[in-house]
């Protein structure tokens, strides 16, 4: 039950994009089409889940036992950067043309502050292993949900008569703001 509460909280109530406004760069940059939004969402979910596991292990097996708490931020940044490099190397190995085509895609995941925030928040909340994984996975699903929703709206907006100064990022930010207000309605669902 506790795990379900953490999951629902991460997806709907404490959604990283719509509650904390983290990870806005890929949220706006890769949300023009639903297909690309789904792939970015899955990439972020994967990196978030793995980050939750590795950062939990480092925090509980190295940082806390040896009194190195002050190295949290540095070590988590290192973990995230290394993970994204590993994912990049894996993709280069399994599919060179896909790796060639990715360009900005994976760096967008690396520079996603939501992932660092996830590692820090999971450590701050003193989650155990399973809670950390569920929190990481739920946060990724929350990000995916938000990016797919805005991609769907942006596809519709392409056919709408948007005033010239608001086209592009302007209207997207307004939509994101309205979505955040809507998601605020989930507050209080879980205490």
């Amino acid at each position: 039950m506790e795990l379900l509460a953490i999951f629902i909280s991460a997806v709907l109530i404490n959604n990283f994009v719509l509650r904390y406004f983290l990870g806005i760069c890929p949220f706006l940059g890769v949300s023009k089409k639903i297909d690309s939004a789904v792939s970015m969402g899955l990439a972020v979910t994967f990196v978030m889940t793995i980050t939750a596991v590795v950062s939990w292990a480092i925090n509980h097996w190295i940082l806390i036992p040896y009194g190195l708490d002050y190295l949290k931020i540095v070590s988590f940044i290192l973990v995230i950067a290394s993970l994204v490099q590993l994912v990049e190397m894996f993709i280069r190995k399994v599919s060179p043309p896909l790796y060639q085509a990715l360009g900005i895609y994976l760096p967008l995941v690396t520079t996603n502050c939501a992932i660092l925030f996830l590692a820090l928040l999971a450590a701050l909340k003193e989650y155990n292993f399973l809670e950390s994984v569920v929190y990481g996975f739920g946060s990724g699903i929350g990000f995916t949900l938000a990016i797919i929703l805005i991609a769907g709206i942006r596809e519709q907006l392409d056919m709408a008569d948007v005033p010239e100064p608001l086209k592009g990022a302007g209207i997207s930010l307004i939509v994101a703001g309205i979505m955040a207000l809507a998601f605020f309605g989930f507050s209080g669902m879980i205490k």
Binding site: S39, L42, T45, F46, T49, S95, A101
Partner: peptide, 23 residues
């Protein structure tokens, strides 16, 4: 010509399979 749609499909496949595997 870039097979743009194929890139997205393959990425969804890669991360989807890895996610299903770990979960």
């Amino acid at each position: 010509k870039f097979p743009e749609g194929d890139y997205t499909k393959e990425l969804i496949r890669i991360f989807g399979i890895l996610l299903v595997g770990i979960i």
